[in-house]
C-alpha cells in the first residue's frame, strides 16, 4: 500500500508551509524526513497522515485520494504519533494502548497484547502513565499506534527527549515494523540517526523537497550545506556514521545578526 504526495501544497495560518512536493513512499522501509526548523517537516507529516487538507495537489493511499477516504478507514490504514503527545488523563498503560483500537469495532484485545509484547511493555500494563519514565512513555505511545495495526506509521520526532539507549531501542522497534511490511515515516532532527537507520531520506528546506534518496546521497555534505548552511562531513563506517560539523559558508556570511 503506497503512500504518495503528488504536487502537494499545504497551507497553515495563511502561509504555504509545503510547496509542490511530490514523493512516492514505499512500505517495508523507514523513510526519514529531515530539514532545518520551520522547513515544513511536521506539516508534511500531518498532510501525509490526512490530518491537514492539501490546498493544492493530493495525497494518495494506494490508488485513491486520502481526502476522499472515510476518517475511520483512513485511521485504520495510517497511525500517527504527534510530536508532543500529551495525555490528558492519568490512565493505565493498557487503557492508553487500547485507544489505538478506536478506529476498529470491538476491543481487539489480541492486537493490544501483541503490540504490548512487541515493544516490551507487558510489564507496564497496569502502570499509570504518570508513573512512567520518559523512555517508557515514548515506547507506550508508539505501542498505542501499533495496536491499531496500521499499514503506515507516521511519527513526528519520536526520539526527541530520549537518551541514546532508548533512541536506539525505539529505532529498532520501528525497523522491526518495517521488516513486517509496514510503512514507517519519521521526522528526525538527528541526521546521524537518519543516516544510519533509514532506507530513504527526504530533505526539506522552506517547504520544498531539495533531496530525496538513500541517506548516503540525500545527506551528502553538499545537501547539508544547502539546507542548513553548515559545513559538515561524515566520519566512520556505513551503519555507524557520525557527523562532524564546522561553521559553514552560509552561516559565516549571514553572521548571527
Amino acid at each position: 500500500m503506497t503512500l504518495a504526495a503528488e504536487n502537494l501544497t499545504l497551507t497553515r495560518g495563511g502561509h504555504e508551509v509545503v510547496r509542490g512536493l511530490s514523493a512516492r513512499l514505499t512500505p517495508g522501509e523507514i523513510t526519514a524526513i529531515v530539514g532545518p526548523n520551520g522547513a515544513g517537516k511536521s506539516s508534511l507529516l500531518l498532510g501525509l497522515a490526512g490530518l491537514l487538507a492539501p490546498s493544492a495537489g493530493a495525497v494518495t493511499l494506494e490508488a485513491g485520494s486520502l481526502a476522499a477516504l472515510h476518517p475511520r478507514a483512513r485511521a485504520q490504514a495510517i497511525g500517527y504519533l504527534p510530536q508532543t503527545p500529551d495525555i490528558a488523563w492519568d490512565v493505565s498503560v493498557e487503557s492508553l494502548v487500547a485507544l489505538g483500537r478506536l478506529p476498529w469495532p470491538g476491543r481487539g484485545q489480541a492486537a493490544i497484547d501483541a503490540a504490548l509484547a512487541a515493544l516490551d511493555c507487558e510489564g507496564l500494563r497496569r502502570r499509570r502513565v504518570s508513573q512512567l519514565s520518559g523512555g517508557e512513555r515514548a515506547r507506550v505511545l508508539l505501542t498505542r499506534v501499533l495496536a491499531g495495526e496500521p499499514h503506515w506509521i507516521l511519527a513526528d520526532e519520536p526520539l526527541a527527549a530520549l537518551d541514546l539507549a532508548h533512541q536506539l531501542g525505539l529505532i529498532a522497534h520501528l525497523k522491526a515494523c518495517a521488516g513486517e511490511g509496514q510503512g514507517v515515516v519519521v521526522v528526525l532532527h538527528d541526521l546521524a540517526i537518519a543516516m544510519n537507520h533509514s532506507a530513504r531520506v527526504l530533505v526539506l528546506k522552506e517547504g520544498q523537497l531539495i533531496a530525496d534518496g538513500p541517506p548516503s546521497e540525500a545527506l551528502a555534505p553538499a545537501v547539508i550545506a544547502q539546507a542548513w548552511g553548515v559545513a559538515a562531513r561524515w566520519l566512520g563506517e556505513p551503519g555507524a556514521m557520525a557527523l562532524a560539523t564546522g561553521p559553514g559558508p552560509g552561516r559565516a556570511e549571514q553572521g548571527f545578526g
Binding site: 500531518l46 497522515a49 490526512g50 490530518l51 476518517p71 475511520r72 483512513r74 485511521a75 485504520q76 495510517i78 497511525g79 500517527y80 504519533l81 504527534p82 503527545p85 500529551d86 495525555i87 490528558a88 488523563w89 490512565v91 492508553l96 485507544l99 489505538g100 478506536l102 478506529p103 498505542r144 491499531g148
Partner: peptide, 19 residues
C-alpha cells in the same frame, strides 16, 4: 468514544478517526 480519543490530544484524536 470520541472523548476517549481526545485523551491523546486533538491531532492524535483526528488520526484515530475522530470527526
Amino acid at each position: 468514544r470520541s472523548l476517549d480519543a481526545l485523551t491523546l490530544g486533538e491531532e492524535a484524536a483526528r488520526s484515530l478517526g475522530l470527526d
